[in-house]
Nucleic acid binder design. Sequence first.
DNA 1: GGGCATGTTAGCAC
DNA 2: TGTGCTAACATGCC
Length: 282
Amino acid sequence: MPELPEVETVARALRDGTPAGAPALVGHVICSAEVLWPRELGNLTPRVFSRRISGTRVQSIGRYGKYLLIGLERPAVEDGNERLTLLIHLKMSGRLDVVPRTQAFTPHARLVWLLDDDLALRFDDARKFGRVWLVGDPAAVIGNLGPDALDVPLGAFTSRLRARRGMLKPVLLDQTFLAGIGNIYADEALHLARLHPRRTVTSLSDADVVRLHDAIQHVLLAGIAANGASFDWVYPGGNFQENFKVYGRTGRPCQTCGEPIQRILVAQRGTHFCPACQPLIG
DNA sequence: GGGCATGTTAGCAC
DNA sequence: TGTGCTAACATGCC
């Protein structure tokens, strides 16, 4: 379920709990970890991972782009407390839930952390693309990402964009350009900005760049306000999919002009746009 | 059974 | 060096 708004929704649930009654993760002690699919560990063996994380307390929940950052602290008798960060990327199908320890496993459970108070943090991931790292410095994992897509002023956005060439949509999907935009929100932002996904970056006017920056902020914030989008069988959660203007609407009328939405391939990704609202020649 | 899927990366060509 | 293509990761739904 993973683009920036969906990951932000997960982060908020882990920070505050959910209206449905799921407990918050912050403040709990991690007693132990069980790795059911070792390939999802990005930098440690299951044995080392379990040993290093056991006994830490969850201090904070953050998000950078599509990554979750869980701040951990281990009380120390001498020196300062040891600080660690658990980074999680949900990739295509990952999900995280705080549940009672006794709750039955799903068929797709990949990692389980046992918490105090008879709770557990579960990482389920049907497609096994998800990744989990435990590090001292998060930069070791996310240091090469561009600025978070919701935390980039127009000036920085413009200068970064003007340094690039090639087609617009692949640039938006490049996490070293901006972190957090995925296939769905890229299509939605381009439609709102009235820009064809195959427009070259170098062809954009200053006004185009301003509209694009505004559109990115708008669709991401709208996605967060809707608790993200729910995708097929993988993730039931938010309802932003009801507000999609182009994604998944191939052949249906554009809500702005009535023209049928088209689907093409751009950088090998399914791409949805309105040929009338988003002409290739701007 | 083929085609598709919210994501990223390595390897390769130009 | 940057851009962009393919395959790979692995599974499940239509």
